[in-house]
Amino acid sequence: MTTETTEAMRSWLPVGCHAVEVESLSFRYRTTEGQGRMWTLDHLSFHVDAGEILGIVGPNGSGKSSLLKILSGLLPAGEGDVRLGGISLGKRSQTDIARVVAVVPQEYTQVFPFTVAETVLMGRFPHRTSRWWSMGIGDETANDLACAHQSMVDTDVLSLADRLVSDLSGGERQRVMIARALAQEPKILLLDEPTAFLDINHQIDICSLVARLGTERELTVVLVSHDLNVASQYCDRVLMLKEGGLCRIGSPEETIRPDVLRMVYGCDVVVDAHPQTGRPRVTMPMGFARK
């Protein structure tokens, strides 16, 4: 299984290429064009290795979400180059991108009564093999069903298969969205604030799930998070953005440091070692907190 997957990854990834390569990327929203406003992203260069989990952190408005949208092809790269598996985004069609990258959005609301299974199966959309006369009915192949099934097993939502998505709790819905992303059989998984609206129990749940999937499926994972501890505990490397520019990239130990955080966020925090992993742990300082 592992060798097979590695084999598949190799065929996807030309020798000597990184999974994600970002070269001198600059971007600003069209609405602010010509107003002399600052670039949302300014000459950003970095790469993500295959199988790596990269966390993107930074203050509000530092361009985290924009960067994630550019990586998934939702926003056009302004200047510079973004390559997935050695091929520029501009040279890939939307469907082609969808076969390589899957996105788990920050929040997901469904106003219509779709079941979990139906939702996960929609992840197979980029791989559909529609015949013109079928009008989409019975398009799901055995492979599609097996793939969706495995995704639900991996994310532990199989028991929810026939429930309506709108009836689920926040944590369950997040897992369904991850299952839907996995059904895409992506090489790269992008997550936008995966723990933003979850309680601590579900935060742990989702974070360990992502870490486990990264290993099991040899996925390259890029996640954006507000939570410095999530980035520190679960990511191999952390990319720190400040005002659209790359401030620092490296292991959690290299990036989650009081001096770096003061520079980026402009405030003092307490950083010590996590008692279990030894990785940096960020705590709010005493400040004016009541005793």
């Binding site: 949208k69 998934s72 076969r99 899957a102 779709f114 992840g123 839907r180």
Partner: peptide, 16 residues
């Protein structure tokens, strides 16, 4: 069906 997931998700699934 895919559009009900939201516009961005639909695009990330390859829908123009």
């Amino acid at each position: 069906n895919v559009l009900t997931l939201g516009e961005e998700t639909a695009r990330s699934l390859g829908v123009e």
